[in-house]
Amino acid sequence: MQDGLTILSPAGFLDAHTAPEFETAVEQEIEAGHRKLIVDCQGLTYISSAGLGVFMSFLEELRESGGDIKICGPSPKVLQVFEILGFPAIFDMLPDVAAAVKRYAECPVKGGE
């Protein structure tokens, strides 16, 4: 594992009820100085726009300080929601954590190649 990478693994469903908890978890990582986040969505069974909003709200702040959010492992059902709203154009989306770690080594910030 490269230094400075932080993996968050939300599990279950991410909707308007649970998104604030995930938001707090991301906020705590950022406050602790962790800028290179990997969100492992393997355990996620469902996501709505409230969950997607969490990814969106921290992205600029992280990229401005050389960090990023890389998303990995979503099930086809969860991936479809990311795709409908055009996330793959903005976020690095990878099949698993290993691929996300590799992506950080190649390209720490998407669009910064």
């Binding site: 726009s49 969106m56 600029e60």
Partner: peptide, 23 residues
Amino acid sequence: LELDKLISSRRSGGLGMRLMKKL
């Protein structure tokens, strides 16, 4: 707004409605 515009203006509003119309 397009996704990149929403992100740069730190907003996520309107996504729900967009999803409903697409789905």
